[in-house]
Amino acid sequence: MAATDIDVKYVAHLARIGLTPDEEATMSARLAGILGYIEKLKELDVTGVEPTAHAVPMVNVLRPDVVCPSLPHEAALANAPAQANGLFLVPKIVE
């Protein structure tokens, strides 16, 4: 699949980013250039190479099951764009 085939409208929807038609057009062009450049990774043979997810690999980093204080209620809601009755208000969720 050619890198320029990116469906910006669809991907922007997945990312929940509203784009104007102008933005969409610029985005397509710019991303095509970047994706074209990224294609160079296909030159490499990565057969048998393990992926690196962490630069410093460790395992079993866990915390004990201990309760710590939560935020004071006012602090929890202090940054809420809309709130009522201790809840974060959002437009009606329909599904």
Binding site: C68, S70, L71, H73, A76, L77, N85, G86, L87, F88
Partner: peptide, 8 residues
């Protein structure tokens, strides 16, 4: 009570 057991 709502949002009393929350942290960052």
């Amino acid at each position: 009570a709502p949002n009393t057991q929350v942290c960052p």
